[in-house]
Simulated assay, not measured.
Amino acid sequence: MKGVALTMHALHRGEQALAEQLTVIAARHPREHEVRHVTRYLALWSNEHCRRLADTGRHHGLRLDVPSASPPGPPANDRHPAAEVFGRTPEPVPELLRDLRELHLGAVGNSLHWVMLGQAAQASKDTRLLDLVSFCHPRTLRQMHWSTTMIKNLSPQLLTAGDEQDG
């Protein structure tokens, strides 16, 4: 079961990182209403995954941190209050796409860990672990799907903005 424990630790770290990343994205892009609202909601999912991993981990002899009920606010250096007061904000075009790309890649990494845990749960007939994977992995897949959809929807507009002026 050492491999299961290592995978659970990696997944717990990955879900914590994803929750933090989602929270930062929400704060970094306040004018993108869908991004702001959905990322906050998805951060709650990742925090719940961490809590469930910690609970299941106890049955495997692991001690994993349990996140607080609400995700932490973004680090102070990720906000741009002075720029907003003066009407100047950092250029959101590449930053938003970069953030969504990084978010997607983090969710993909977590998804692969959920797949590995699911396979181990089936092989060892660990119903507790299988229940955990069955609950959390579909949500991770939805996080991936949302980020892909947002990238598809925003890329044409954001990547071609200003091209009309150049031509």
Rank of each mutant, 00 (worst) to 15 (best):
H37P: 00
K2C: 01
G109L: 07
I25M: 12
L159A: 07
A83L: 15
A107D: 12
R88S: 02
P90A: 13
L129Q: 10
M116Q: 15
W146E: 07
R36V: 05
P72R: 08
H9E: 15
G109R: 07
G73A: 14
A82T: 07
A123P: 02
H29S: 05
L18I: 03
E95V: 04
L53C: 06
H137W: 10
P75V: 03
C136Y: 06
R13K: 12
G162E: 04
Q157G: 09
E164V: 07
H104E: 10
Q165K: 13
G73P: 10
H33Y: 03
R28D: 09
V4I: 14
D55F: 05
H37C: 12
Q143T: 11
H113R: 15
R63A: 09
R13L: 08
D99P: 04
P72S: 05
P94W: 07
S155F: 05
R88F: 05
L100N: 08
C136Q: 09
A69H: 13
H12T: 02
P75T: 06
I151F: 05
A83T: 07
H113W: 04
H49Q: 05
L53N: 02
M150P: 00
D55A: 12
L6Q: 15
K2V: 04
K125M: 04
V35A: 01
T160G: 00
H137L: 11
P72Y: 01
H9M: 10
